[in-house]
């Protein structure tokens, strides 16, 4: 199947066309829903075309890592549940899902989007632990961007639960009004390359046959906080710089969309 659609998609991309009629540098339609899940401290539903992910944020109190006693803890995870695609199988996480989780996690962690020093209850003993879990509902490509967007939205809209300091218990169901100390809005943009053509936001069909992939997380300051290449193909230095410029541009677009959605929520 993949072998048959590859030359067709390569020829289409060569003509600067996509199957849905969008341009090489366009995302599919992006829809965002804020806090759809009441059990989470913060949550988000993100649709990019027919790719859909849910991200939930849980806040807990625990011990800091020994090497960072004065910082909270951030842990990102992705579960590629078999419901979301015929390609996903039950069982322990595959390298693909571990890569997705770690790349999304790094984009947020390395941008210092959360001021972790403000997440300390008692230095060296008790800090807030932030967990976010990405669950695809339907996989039609580019889970990286959908998951990263969902994660930052869920984090921006999460509220601390009440913490009973005497009993040392978190009251998960009683959320306060206090939000996480966010400092940045990192945005990930993923590019595909097929037979020399570079394009934004690969669909599942494009993703299955493309030669290679680069994800760049950019910040408002027009800097990058993480990059990750995947797939068996290659890029040139000029490709990388071209994608960097586009990632900055796409980051601005998505940040605007995200701020609009948040102000309505």
């Amino acid at each position: 199947m993949a072998a048959q659609i590859k030359p067709y998609l390569a020829a289409l991309l060569q003509k600067k066309l996509r199957e849905e009629g969008r341009g090489l540098n366009d995302y599919r339609k992006i829809e965002v829903e804020i806090n759809p899940l009441a059990s989470s401290a913060g949550s988000a539903r993100v649709k990019i075309g027919s790719t859909e992910v849910l991200v939930g944020v849980k806040l807990d109190v625990g011990e800091p890592f020994p090497d960072t006693p004065n910082e909270g803890v951030l842990i990102g995870n992705a579960e590629l549940v078999p419901m979301a695609s015929p390609d996903f199988e039950p069982g322990p996480p595959k390298p693909e899902s571990i890569e997705i989780a770690r790349v999304i996690d790094r984009g947020i962690r390395e941008s210092h989007a959360i001021d972790m020093q403000k997440m300390v209850i008692k230095e060296g003993e008790k800090v807030w632990m932030v967990n976010f879990d990405v669950y695809p509902i339907n996989h039609d490509g580019n889970l990286l961007d959908a998951g990263a967007l969902g994660a930052i939205i869920a984090l921006m809209n999460a509220r601390f639960p009440k913490y009973d300091e005497k009993a040392g218990r978190v009251k998960y169901t009683e959320l306060t009004k206090e939000k996480l100390p966010m400092t940045e809005i990192p945005i990930m943009t993923t590019f595909g390359k097929l037979s020399g053509t570079i394009f934004v936001d690969p669909t599942k069909r494009e993703g299955d046959v493309m030669d290679t992939r680069l994800s760049i997380t950019t910040l408002e300051s027009e800097k990058a906080s993480s990059m990750q290449k995947g797939g068996f193909g290659t890029f040139t230095k000029d490709d990388v710089l071209q994608m960097f410029d586009l990632a900055v541009e796409k980051g601005k677009e998505l940040r605007k969309l995200l701020k609009q959605a948040t102000s309505k929520a």
Partner: peptide, 16 residues
């Protein structure tokens, strides 16, 4: 041709 590229941290275009 570049076959691996990863980055964590804080870099602008010129630095990359």
């Amino acid at each position: 041709e570049i076959t691996l590229l990863q980055m964590d941290g804080d870099l602008n275009r010129d630095e990359i």
